[in-house]
Design a protein around this nucleic acid. Sequence first.
DNA 1: AAAAAAATGTGCTTTACATCACAATTCACC
DNA 2: GGTGAATTGTGATGTAAAGCACATTTTTTT
Lengths: 233, 233
Amino acid sequence: MVKQVADPFLTDPLSALHEYFDGIINVREGTYLFQEGMEVHELYCIQSGLVQISKTTSDGRELALKICKKGDLIGEFSIFSNDPKHIFNAKVLENSSIYFIKKERLECKLFENPHLSLSFLKWMSEQYQITQTKFRDLILNGKKGALYSTLIRMANTYGVETENGILINIDMTNQELANFCGATRESINRMLSNLRKKGVISFQNKKITIHDLQYLKDEINCENCPVSYCRID
Amino acid sequence: MVKQVADPFLTDPLSALHEYFDGIINVREGTYLFQEGMEVHELYCIQSGLVQISKTTSDGRELALKICKKGDLIGEFSIFSNDPKHIFNAKVLENSSIYFIKKERLECKLFENPHLSLSFLKWMSEQYQITQTKFRDLILNGKKGALYSTLIRMANTYGVETENGILINIDMTNQELANFCGATRESINRMLSNLRKKGVISFQNKKITIHDLQYLKDEINCENCPVSYCRID
DNA sequence: AAAAAAATGTGCTTTACATCACAATTCACC
DNA sequence: GGTGAATTGTGATGTAAAGCACATTTTTTT
């Protein structure tokens, strides 16, 4: 019987949770919603705007993990442990309005509402899959794997079908792409040039079009995992 | 009020869950409890024995993630999604008896029992932290980072205090250690030799003793994260 | 105790990326 | 539309780790 339960959290977390939120905060582009090391107090949900989740490396580089947009939940899983600390940065890419709910209240609500609780479990498991597969690509297939998988994810997330391929409809400099791959700008640049030479992709004004998605998938032994978690967000 | 709730799941998942399990299976050393690609039907809990969770790479290499022992839960988080597939292998290292619970029943139980549900959330979040930090070490600090962090984790998990350091009380060949680090046997061998020369570690009959744990931590900018999730299991 | 198998140790070569340096191009804004 | 800043493109060089080959040591089997 559980299976028939509607799942508003997954299909539209905002509508399911927004009545529970404690309030809303407005944050300016360029600031941080939170940074590594800070205490975790709240779970967030974007009402409008764009927020990038990343991790800073010891040598100051940045590993970008995902970009969150309207409707996305932002939160550390550690929120349920004692004295949780943020292990990511949440950089505000454009002015945003963000709902928040205090961890204590979240726990109460989850405790009271089994539907919510189960939906939340599903959300967590999906998030886990996303980071999981992302790290797999980064570790198991080198930088090429990192780039190709990032391109595939971006195609799944921001892709727009056009007559000559999938346009990744988001501005992205080589450096920003490199941050997503844990690689240097130069490496990314060279790899992109190669892909262009081969006709796999093309690009103009900071937007990439993928002509041969299958090539990318083949090269990294893509298992054709569900699009639901082969994504950037 | 939620915070005062006892948390049997976390402190002893077996005792909290075992009454719910559907049954128990016995599996022989060398076989697999499940393998990548197979459908996910159940959640498991080890009653006795040892099971290693790993991921096979396209070129046939193996990335070992953790070793589960008595009391540990084994399961894919994807269990809550539709048509979930295993993304890991569970290799039985020694003959084991393993409880299982069907996913449908698990969902029911979680739905019925908010305590269980919340504990399960905590368990998931802890698991997430563990893989998270592990991948961070693998990605952000190169192979040396992978090895050093693996040694630290093993010390936290299998370490026994002795008069001249922490003995990692588990047999481990260079190859097996390499599998945990996503590196080659040769690289691991060389790095271990270097550490021995420096007096940081020593080893005899497949067991490693760490004399200078702080050296390892310093080298990888260890944030002294809680031992609870800087572990192998 | 001998033979076979597994694991370790090490030199040499190759590869993938990072790093450095700088020129060429594109973008932003007064 | 011109000027400075940001971004892109590319060669040269350095470095960490993989790959290969093989000798040595340890463990297991008979």
